[in-house]
Every structure is written in structure tokens, then in C-alpha cells.
């Protein structure tokens, strides 16, 4: 819904600019006709989105992927250092819709994850999948991409889309914490334990000034419901990938409980090396045997981190 309105606004802006630039502005009917014509023209020479490797530039933005958080564990790297690991499962990701500037007004890819039966979906959702000609998916998510990173509908995004050693941003819905006080929710300091403190050891303290505003400002950090919010953990290091089972090992925590969906994108801050990433995505060769794929581990260098510290 939001996407449609965004596209609509963009389209309207284009038309307004178009109608303002010529000196005698044509009648509304004529304008409408020309716009209709333009739309048809755009759809006639419809862009051909091919699934073929391209060259990634620094400004290119690749599609993300949807994963299921499987849980956490810890393992030792080759130097004997213990790394906390979260395992993410890219369950059958495919591109389910392509949004192009001619139609929607912007470039984006809608990616679907998992499988679902038709009887478990609502009619409009089934209609969407039917119209796109893709199998029913459990979770859908739109990822904004640049124009050169568009992929045709039905392209599968497997775990080799990400390269071990790169950094990603992981978005998810955090676990619910219930009603929490200021100390847990906002990291307030609370009150003193002694020195005459009475019934205010974990209280939030003052909430404002005196008569001058005479009120508590909106947005004051107080106790309240915590958790069940969308949060992004940035710069998560990809340790290992397993192409045979579409599993991704990342270092550290990601938001959400076990079995929740998380959304993985290339990191915004610690940008990966554009020459190493498969662009627009990794295209698996047709004759590969999924059983024989080896898992890839990130390169952690040849210098011993424990000896280097001395």
C-alpha cells in the first residue's frame, strides 16, 4: 500500500513538472491523454531484465535476503579463539516481484521466503502470487535496489549471495520484554542504594522543570512497554556459509527469537568490497550437484592474533 502511494507521488511529481515546463499548458484532458500515451510507450518497450552477472559499482545496491534465525552457538576458529555465532537459514528465497521506475516509480525487488499452502493464505495474497507466477511464500519483503541490480521474477537468491568475511546488516523484530522501568528500558541510573534514599532506588528521577513549562514534555523517557520493535544490528560479520543447506553463520547476536524472520542486507557502514560480491546475485551453474557443495569459511588471516598482541 505504502509502496503504491510512493510510486503515485513520484508519478504525479513527474507529470506536474512536465506540464509546468512547456509555456502554454495544455488542457487537463490532453494532459491525461499524453500521460496515458507515455505510460503505454513505457510498457511497450518494456525493459528486459536478464539474469546475468553484471559489474558492481560503488553506488550499486544489491538485493537483500530473508532468513530464519535458527539459534546461537559458539565455535573456535583456527587460532583457538571462541566466536559467538548465530545461524541463519535462507529458506528458498526467490524474487517474487520486480518494481521498476516505469510502473511503480522506483526500483525494488520483493523477495519471498519459505513455502506456504494456498489454504493458509488470504485471497488477495494468493492473487498476488498467481499474478506474479511464483509459488506461495511464507514471508515477503521488499528491498530497495539500484537499477543495475534488478533481477527477473523467479530468480532464486541462495546463500552464496553473501561472501564469508563481508559485513551485513540484520534487521528483525526484537523479543518482547513487557512493561519495564526506566533503568532497563532506557539505561537510566536509578537512585542511590543508601544515603537516605527511600523507595526510589530504581526510579527515573525528575521528569521536567517547574512552573515555566508546567508540564512533562512529550517523548519523555519513562517506564513502559519494551521490545517487539524493529531493530537493525549493523556490521555483522559473516563467518561461514553452507551452500548445500543454505545456512549462514554470522558473528554475534541478531534481533528476535529462534524461528523468527530476519532480513539481511549488505552493510551500510562497513561496505563490502564490490569486486568480491556476486552481482546482482549469485547464479548457480545448472549442472552443479547440491550434495557436493563445500561450506566456505571466512579468511581470518595468517597472523596469530594472540601472538601479535605482544
Amino acid at each position: 500500500m505504502a509502496a503504491a502511494s510512493r510510486g503515485l507521488v513520484r508519478r504525479l511529481n513527474q507529470f506536474l513538472l512536465r506540464s509546468l515546463s512547456p509555456s502554454p499548458s495544455p488542457s487537463p484532458a490532453a494532459l491525461y491523454n499524453t500521460s496515458q500515451l507515455r505510460m503505454f510507450c513505457a510498457e511497450d518497450d518494456s525493459r528486459v531484465i536478464e539474469a546475468k552477472p553484471g559489474v558492481m559499482t560503488r553506488d550499486s545496491k544489491r538485493s537483500g535476503a530473508i532468513a530464519v534465525k535458527c539459534g546461537m552457538t559458539a565455535l573456535w576458529d583456527k587460532w583457538g579463539a571462541r566466536i559467538p555465532i548465530t545461524i541463519l537459514w535462507l529458506d528458498d528465497n526467490i524474487v517474487s516481484q520486480v518494481k521498476i521506475p516505469e510502473k511503480e516509480g522506483f526500483c525494488a525487488l520483493q523477495v519471498g521466503c519459505g513455502q506456504k499452502k494456498e489454504k493458509h493464505l488470504r485471497k488477495p495474497e494468493v492473487g498476488h502470487f498467481r499474478a506474479q507466477g511464483v509459488p506461495m511464500k511464507r514471508k515477503l519483503r521488499e528491498f530497495p535496489v539500484t537499477e543495475d541490480a534488478l533481477l527477473p521474477v523467479g530468480t532464486s537468491i541462495d546463500v552464496r549471495h553473501f561472501v564469508p568475511g563481508q559485513y551485513v546488516d540484520v534487521t528483525g523484530i526484537t523479543k518482547g520484554k513487557g512493561f519495564q522501568g526506566g533503568m532497563k528500558r532506557w539505561n537510566f541510573d536509578g537512585g542511590p542504594a543508601s544515603h537516605g534514599a527511600s523507595k526510589s532506588h530504581r526510579s527515573i528521577g525528575s521528569t521536567g522543570q517547574r512552573d515555566a513549562p508546567g508540564k512533562v514534555f512529550k517523548g519523555k523517557k519513562m517506564a513502559g512497554h519494551m521490545g517487539v520493535e524493529q531493530r537493525t544490528v549493523k556490521n555483522v560479520w559473516v563467518y561461514k556459509i553452507d551452500p548445500a543447506r543454505n545456512l549462514l553463520w554470522v558473528k554475534g547476536q541478531v534481533p528476535g527469537a529462534t524461528g523468527n524472520f530476519v532480513f539481511i542486507r549488505d552493510a551500510v557502514y562497513k561496505k563490502p568490497d564490490v569486486s568480491l560480491l556476486p552481482f546482482p546475485t549469485y547464479f548457480a551453474p545448472e549442472d552443479e550437484d547440491p550434495e557436493k557443495l563445500e561450506s566456505l569459511v571466512a579468511d581470518i588471516g595468517d597472523t596469530d592474533p594472540f601472538m601479535a598482541a605482544d
Binding site: 528486459v48 536478464e50 539474469a51 506474479q132 511464483v134 523467479g154
Partner: peptide
């Protein structure tokens, strides 16, 4: 049955 413009996304489809 599926895609309105079959030719456009032929490559991707065959892949899938």
C-alpha cells in the same frame, strides 16, 4: 499461465 510478459523474464523463469 503465470507471467503477463513471458518474454521479458524468460531467462529467470527457465532458471527457476
Amino acid at each position: 499461465c503465470g507471467i503477463p510478459s513471458a518474454l521479458r523474464s524468460c531467462g529467470g523463469l527457465s532458471l527457476a
